[in-house]
């Protein structure tokens, strides 16, 4: 792939079949990288720390020449930069940032401000959304072994550890748990009304993206909150969530919603 960065390693959540419907939700979530920056001349650690601190907060980035997006200056937020190690030539950095921040560009710009020049040598993503370097992170070899074990001996144990339920994709989101009787209407794309709610997180603001889940823990759909948690807590009717992405196919739960008008 020509000008890509295939040498980059680290956290890459891969969604399978039905789970692909919601994986796009991770694309715009916060990221963390560990990167090696090579300085073209030595600077003092104090000076480096000072300059790195200047890059924390809002920064301006113009996408690189060969990039997949429009080359207009974009404002990105750097949440933190930690200097993990410094040899005078190489700096090992841990960087928390908004999605779409260019690390190569950041290293270049730090070099410019330092006045000596710098470039990125190596990059590893350590977090995207809820997915981190933890016990759930698996290598291609581990995946391949788990598939082999399942295919050859029928043992599912390893494969079940290697592949997580898709609900993990929404683990970092605010959640609303709905009644069994509301599930099928949501699965058909209807919006969620307050009487269909069993319980909800208390931090939801109007306009927030939320995950709608069953009492069994199944992801039904993603939606946009039309009411805050407080409002939902106080009222007994009205539309609480606009459904934006349905994950569960219709017919899994019984249809209870059409008969209401026939009472």
């Amino acid at each position: 792939m020509g000008w890509g960065d295939p040498k980059v390693t680290g956290v890459l959540p891969v969604a399978l079949e039905n789970a692909t419907k919601v994986i796009g939700n991770i694309v715009h979530s916060g990221k963390e990288y560990v990167c090696v920056m090579q300085l073209h001349s030595e600077v003092s650690e104090d000076k480096l720390r000072k300059v790195l601190n200047e890059f924390v907060g809002k920064i301006y980035q113009k996408p690189p020449l060969r990039s997949s997006v429009k080359r207009t200056i974009r404002v990105k937020t750097i949440y933190y930069i930690e200097l993990l190690e410094y040899t005078g030539k190489y700096a090992l950095l841990r960087i928390g940032c908004e999605a779409g921040t260019y690390m190569r560009k950041l290293c270049h710009d730090v070099g410019e401000v330092l006045g000596v020049g710098a470039h990125m040598r190596e990059l590893r993503r350590t977090r995207t959304g809820p997915f981190k370097e933890d016990e759930t992170l698996v290598t291609m070899q581990q995946l391949s072994e788990a598939i082999y074990e399942w295919r050859s001996s029928g043992s599912e144990k390893l494969l079940r550890k290697t592949i997580l339920p898709m609900e993990y994709i929404v683990s970092h989101m605010s959640k609303i748990i709905i009644r069994d009787s509301a599930v099928d209407s949501i699965a058909h794309g209807a919006d969620l009304a307050v009487p269909g709610i069993v319980m909800l997180h208390d931090n939801i603001r109007r306009g927030d993206k939320v995950a709608l889940m069953t009492l069994k823990g199944e992801l039904v759909a993603l939606g946009k909150a039309l009411m805050s948690s407080k409002e939902i807590g106080e009222v007994s009717k009205g539309i609480a969530v606009k459904t934006i992405r349905v994950v569960m196919p219709p017919g899994v739960y019984p249809k209870k919603w059409k008969t209401r008008s026939k009472q």
């Binding site: 040498k7 390693t9 969604a15 399978l16 079949e17 290697t162 592949i163 993990y168 069994k216 899994v252």
Partner: peptide, 25 residues
């Protein structure tokens, strides 16, 4: 109705799964 996410039949588990993959270089 439905199924607990951790008790899905294995083929369903895969079809509704996500892998936290460590991308190789």
């Amino acid at each position: 109705y439905g199924s607990f996410p951790w008790k899905r039949e294995i083929k369903e588990h895969i079809r509704n799964g996500v892998i936290n993959l460590d991308k190789p270089p």
